[in-house]
Simulated scan of single mutants.
Amino acid sequence: MDWPTTECIVTARLLLEPLSVEHAPSMIEVLAQPSLYDYTGGEIPSLKLLEKRYAAQTVGHSEDGSQWWLNWVVIERDIGKPVGFVQATVEDDGSNLVADIAWVISPDWQGRGIASEAA
C-alpha cells in the first residue's frame, strides 16, 4: 500500500513535528524521568538507542507494508521545546483503516490536556 507522508500539525498550543533522528537529543530530557516507565516498563533511553529507534520509526511503515507508522514530537509552542510524542499505527482491516494511538508526555507537562490535544 502507498501510505501518505506525515506532515506538521499545529493546534492551539502545540506543534506536532514529524519525528526525525534529529529530535533524539532534545527528547532525551523529555524521556529521562523514571516515573514514565512505572506502568509501561522499559528504561530511560540513551541517545544512541533513541537515534536507532527513531531511524527505524521514521521509515513510516512496516517492512511488509501492512502498517503505516505516524510519529510526531509534541512541542509546546510557547516554550518551543518538546514535551512528549504521539504516534499512530494504521492498518487496513479489509474495509476500514484502523488506528492504534499512543502517547508519552513528560510528567512535568501531564494533567494539562496535552495528550488529548495532540491525539
Score class of each variant (00 low, 15 high):
residue 81 K to Y: 10
residue 55 A to M: 05
residue 117 E to M: 02
residue 89 T to F: 02
residue 74 V to M: 02
residue 38 D to T: 15
residue 112 R to S: 10
residue 90 V to S: 04
residue 119 A to E: 13
residue 74 V to I: 15
residue 55 A to V: 01
residue 111 G to T: 04
residue 52 K to L: 10
residue 98 V to N: 03
residue 59 V to L: 12
residue 112 R to D: 09
residue 83 V to P: 06
residue 39 Y to N: 11
residue 83 V to Q: 08
residue 29 E to H: 11
residue 61 H to W: 13
residue 78 D to S: 08
residue 114 I to K: 05
residue 79 I to K: 11
residue 31 L to D: 06
residue 93 D to E: 15
residue 48 K to N: 13
residue 74 V to S: 02
residue 94 G to S: 05
residue 48 K to M: 09
residue 105 I to Q: 00
residue 112 R to I: 04
residue 85 F to C: 07
residue 93 D to V: 10
residue 46 S to W: 06
residue 99 A to E: 09
residue 90 V to K: 03
residue 75 I to S: 07
residue 86 V to G: 03
residue 66 S to V: 10
residue 117 E to N: 02
residue 38 D to H: 11
residue 49 L to M: 05
residue 27 M to R: 14
residue 110 Q to V: 04
residue 89 T to S: 06
residue 43 E to S: 13
residue 72 W to A: 14
residue 72 W to H: 14
residue 84 G to F: 05
residue 76 E to L: 15
residue 109 W to Q: 08
residue 28 I to N: 05
residue 90 V to G: 03
residue 51 E to P: 01
residue 26 S to L: 14
residue 108 D to Q: 14
residue 42 G to L: 13
residue 37 Y to D: 09
residue 118 A to I: 00
residue 89 T to C: 11
residue 41 G to C: 00
residue 73 V to T: 11
residue 53 R to P: 01
residue 71 N to F: 13
residue 34 P to A: 15
residue 62 S to N: 12
residue 27 M to G: 06
residue 94 G to K: 03
residue 114 I to G: 04
residue 116 S to D: 12
residue 76 E to M: 04
residue 85 F to W: 09
residue 32 A to P: 00
residue 63 E to M: 02
residue 92 D to V: 04
residue 44 I to M: 09
residue 102 A to M: 01
residue 46 S to F: 07
residue 79 I to R: 14
residue 98 V to A: 01
residue 100 D to W: 01
residue 79 I to E: 14
residue 96 N to W: 04
residue 25 P to F: 03
residue 64 D to P: 13
residue 81 K to N: 11
residue 53 R to D: 15
residue 49 L to T: 13
residue 94 G to F: 03
residue 97 L to A: 07
residue 104 V to C: 14
residue 56 A to V: 10
residue 87 Q to D: 09
residue 73 V to A: 14
residue 74 V to D: 01
residue 68 W to R: 11
residue 31 L to N: 07
residue 49 L to Y: 08
residue 86 V to Y: 00
residue 49 L to R: 12
residue 79 I to V: 12
residue 109 W to G: 00
residue 89 T to D: 06
residue 63 E to C: 02
residue 72 W to L: 13
residue 70 L to W: 04
residue 105 I to T: 04
residue 65 G to R: 00
residue 44 I to A: 13
residue 40 T to E: 15
residue 63 E to S: 10
residue 92 D to M: 06
residue 106 S to R: 02
residue 116 S to H: 15
residue 30 V to Y: 02
residue 78 D to K: 12
residue 43 E to T: 14
